[in-house]
Design a protein around this nucleic acid. Structure first.
Length: 845
RNA sequence: GGGCGGUUAGCUCAGUCUGGUCAGAGCGCCUGCCUUACAAGCAGGAGGUCCCCGGUUCGAGCCCGGGAUCGCCCACCA
């Protein structure tokens, strides 16, 4: 094989392989036939159209592709449902930024033109991440790419909205919502993140209407006092008992505030008296509803004070706060100011501080959907791996709250809702008659994502795809969208298909930067998987990410990727070695063992296959990757290839083992295995379309395994001895074997340890060294290859080591408890070990 | 305030479910080798109080209790 380079160069080798896969749609686009139970499918977590491949996608993609390729090679129709998400806020923001640079904005453009502009943007740039997935080797169904805003998909979304509305689960309500001043939209609870903020807590005196003193309240947001409608104290708080039912006067405004009792108030916190602002605080809102308090709004959607705020109208909140504090100070109503650090809700999207506002929005009632979604996880219909996420999932569903689903954006699924005066119409088609106006809001992006596993397959039509691939099998994602997405898919799948959307949820690790910080572009800690692919190849990146993956968060380790690259190179060279011999001699693969080492490698291959299959099916990808590495390096290359060098009759077995190893490895490192496959004699088509190697129980051979294991240990003992004693590496050393169980492996031992084994009588000479090996002793006979002084030094060290081990074994056996209570097999093994050690020591003299 | 997870070699991590053969891998380091597949290689080696304390057990990285420490998730204390 002179045309094959000594070094495997993934940058050169991978692209042509990719071309061949892409030219074979039958590989990744299975016919929509058969049942979902027979077939295998995964719906990709749809990346945002604005997205570029990051490390999370790369890990996710590596895992899903390993599963898909493995199942495809098992002969199943394997479909990896592909597509992208319209990602309302992210995409709209992207295009708005563009407009800003052009000196215009969406308001100027108008809704229709703006949306057209976003579509244009999407056509141009939306495919980036798909191309990047290809480079990773992901064998998605590229023949059918979905988009959550496709017309057919939009139909599905509208239908779900209309039906849930008819069923009373979707409703419109005036409630306090999380208002994001950054995106100028309401957002759901899940899109809010708590951040630590330094505030000042003010204690403010509210004079009593009776004129007899004041009640002091604590607040970090004095500007909201303009919307106060009560003061609350705890019902059992004796300090305030006499004030309940009294009235306080709101400073600056003069409003009369009833003093009420509510158990929500914590007497020990602050002053124990709480100003109630139902219009701007979620807790106060609830208290207000309980007590029938008026709900005033003094802050608007633009983050400025409203007309209700009187002289402060129009001021940004922060400025209003300063002025109000100044006014209160002037009136000597501020009792204290205390620096106060606490958690404050911020928008996950814009990063701005959430402004709780009372707003008319659409909500979804969740209890009725959550219950069955919890049940299927409880009863194991849906398995979550790793299992500790189960509890988190269930806890969330058991404490579910209404979901605010309307968003004040333009890019997305516009609500199928029309208004005319006091009338509201909800339907798939616009209402008949004049004067209707459509609700301008769009749905939360996660509303449409929740339908992903079935809307991508053509629902609500009863398509062949739906029959063949729903429910899907595995859902692979990071845990940050367990509630946002996974739980909601389960709800919607059950509600609209009557079946779970997938049977396994695998939660991936989060890959952190090498220093343990979050990988993020803004922190500058991001590592681009494409750079890593350029450096180490897609196989290396895939292997490395799988090897890193775990049940916990992990730091990115380029080492592991390099290890994967090393594996690809190793397989490449092992293949070159085998193929070079084929070229010289010609051979056909045949796995019939001709020598004990053949039986050994076949038995080891069986174990490697079983372990790989078990690991992939059990979502233990690090085991799958590292197990493969160990087999290829430690067994196939380090021992078997070296052992059979020069043995011509081993070639058919070598070929057979290589061929199976490539197929076994393909789901993890698809490129190098495909590249090599093309050179194998007799191999047809794509390895990607070849069957994964079936179990061959007749190859199991524990005798061969233990015989070769003995030989390996003996070789290592000799090599270690040679090195320490300073025997020239090339020299052959005479020796005599006095050990049981080496009948079939003596030749291999001699060759690999560079020994010349003397037969019984030839070896009668006194040994210059004796090495303990499994089953007996290897005596080194005198020769000019070794330094006797070094040998005796080494023997002394060996004696000390043996004596130590003997002491340990004796101690253990002297322990009456051990002998009496440990299982007899364990005790027997210990006795055997002691006898062996003693014999070895005796041999050393 | 609840919940979850981590702490094992200089670094990044396996191993803990199922206690004994389990002190492991990769990288790094030291020594020797271009041995006719691979120097991105091969062979050999050094290096660990398995976070701490206590318990269970004949025997504990592994099981139990407590603690320290780092991290994550959830949560409406002004």
């Amino acid at each position: 094989m002179p045309e094959l380079p000594k070094r495997y160069d993934p940058a050169a080798a991978e692209p042509p392989v990719l071309e061949r896969w892409l030219a074979a749609p039958e590989l990744y686009h299975p016919a929509p036939e058969g049942t979902a139970a027979e077939n295998y499918s995964i719906a990709i977590p749809p990346p945002n159209v604005t997205g570029a491949l990051h490390m999370g996608h790369a890990l996710n993609g590596s895992i899903q592709d390993t599963l898909i390729r493995f199942q495809r090679m098992q002969g199943r129709r394997a479909k990896w449902i592909l597509g992208t998400d319209h990602a309302g806020i992210a995409t709209q923001a992207q295009v708005e930024k563009l407009l800003l640079r052009e000196g215009t904005d969406r308001e100027t453009l108008g809704r229709e033109a703006f949306v057209a502009r976003v579509w244009e943007w999407r056509e141009r740039y939306g495919g980036t991440i798909i191309e990047q997935l290809k480079r990773l080797g992901a064998s998605c169904d590229f023949a059918e790419e979905r988009f959550t805003l496709d017309p057919a998909y939009a139909q599905a979304v509208a239908k779900v909205f209309v039906e849930l509305h008819e069923q009373g689960l979707i409703y419109r309500d005036l409630r306090l919502v999380n208002w994001d001043p950054g995106t100028r939209s309401a957002i759901s609870d899940l899109e809010v993140e708590e951040r630590e903020v330094q505030d000042v807590m003010y204690a403010i005196d509210y004079p009593l209407a009776s004129g007899s003193g004041a009640v002091t309240v604590a607040t970090v947001r004095p500007e909201t006092m303009l919307a106060d409608t009560a003061i609350a104290v705890h019902p059992d708080d004796e300090r305030y008992a006499r004030l309940v039912g009294e009235t306080a006067i709101l400073p600056l405004v003069g409003r009369r505030l009833p003093i009420i009792a509510d158990p929500y108030v914590k007497p020990e916190f602050g002053t124990g008296a709480l100003k109630i602002t139902p219009g701007h605080d979620p807790n106060d809102f609830e208290i207000g509803r309980r007590h029938g308090l008026p709900e005033l709004s003094v802050i608007g959607e633009d983050g400025r004070m409203t007309e209700e705020a009187g002289e402060w109208a129009g001021l940004p909140v922060r400025e209003a706060r300063e002025r109000i504090v100044a006014a209160l100070t002037e009136q000597e109503l501020i009792v204290s100011r205390t620096p106060y650090t606490h958690m404050v809700p911020h928008s996950h999207r814009s990063g701005e501080r959430i402004e709780p506002l009372i707003s008319l929005q659409w909500f979804m009632r969740m209890e009725e959907l959550a219950e069955p979604a919890a049940a299927v996880v409880r009863d194991g219909t849906v398995r979550i791996t790793p299992e500790n996420h189960r509890r988190v999932y269930l806890d969330w569903l058991e404490n579910i709250r209404p979901w605010c689903i309307s968003r004040q954006l333009w890019w997305g699924h516009q609500l199928p809702v029309w208004y005319r005066a006091e009338e509201t119409y909800v339907g798939l088609e616009p209402p008949a008659g004049e004067g209707w106006t459509r609700d301008p809001d769009v749905l939360d992006t996660w509303f449409s994502s929740a339908l992903w596993p079935f809307a991508t397959l053509g629902w609500p039509e009863e398509t062949d795809e739906l029959r063949a691939f729903y429910p899907t099998d595995a859902l692979v994602t990071a845990r940050d969208i367990l509630f946002l997405w996974v739980a909601r898919m389960v709800m919607m799948g059950l509600r609209f298909r009557g079946e779970v959307p997938f049977t396994d949820v695998y939660i991936t690790s989060v890959i952190q930067a090498p220093d343990g910080r979050r990988m993020s572009k803004s922190l500058g800690t991001g590592i681009d998987p494409l750079d890593e692919i350029a450096r180490h190849g897609a196989d290396g990146v895939r292997f490395g990410l799988l090897a890193m993956s775990s049940s916990q968060d992990v730091r990115y380790a380029e080492d592991k990727v390099a290890q994967g690259q090393g594996l690809a190179n190793k397989l490449w060279n092992a293949s070159r070695f085998v193929l070079g011999q084929v070229e010289a001699g010609g051979a056909v693969a045949d796995a019939t063992p001709r020598a004990i080492e053949d039986a050994w490698i076949l038995a080891r291959l069986e174990r490697a296959k079983a372990e790989a299959a078990r690991a992939i099916e059990g979502f233990e990808f690090h085991r799958a990757a590292l197990g493969l590495y160990d087999f290829v390096y430690a067994e196939l290359c380090d021992w078997y290839l070296e052992w059979v060098k020069g043995r011509e009759d081993a070639l058919p077995i070598l070929l057979a083992v290589l061929e199976e190893t490539l197929r076994m490895a393909h789901p993890v490192i698809p490129f190098v295995t495909e590249a090599m496959w093309a050179h194998l004699p007799g191999a047809e088509g794509l390895i990607a379309a070849a069957p994964w190697p079936a179990a061959a129980p007749e190859r199991e051979d524990e005798e061969a395994e233990s015989a070769v294991a003995r030989a390996i240990a003996a070789v290592q003992a000799v090599r270690s001895w040679r090195d320490e004693v300073g025997v020239r590496p090339g020299a052959t050393v005479p020796a005599r074997l006095e050990a049981a169980g080496y009948e079939d492996v003596a030749g291999g031992l001699a060759r690999l340890a560079r020994l010349e084994l003397a037969s019984g009588e030839d070896g009668a000479t006194g040994p210059v060294a004796s090495l303990a090996i499994p089953g007996g002793t290897l005596h080194i006979l005198p020769s000019d290859a070794l330094d006797l002084e070094a040998a005796s030094r080494r023997a002394g060290a060996e004696r000390a080591r043996l004596a130590g081990e003997i002491g340990r074994a004796e101690g253990k056996l002297a322990n009456a408890g051990f002998v009496a209570k440990a299982p007899s097999a364990v005790v027997a093994a210990e006795r055997e070990k002691l006898a062996r050690l003693q014999a070895a020591l005796a041999e050393l003299g």
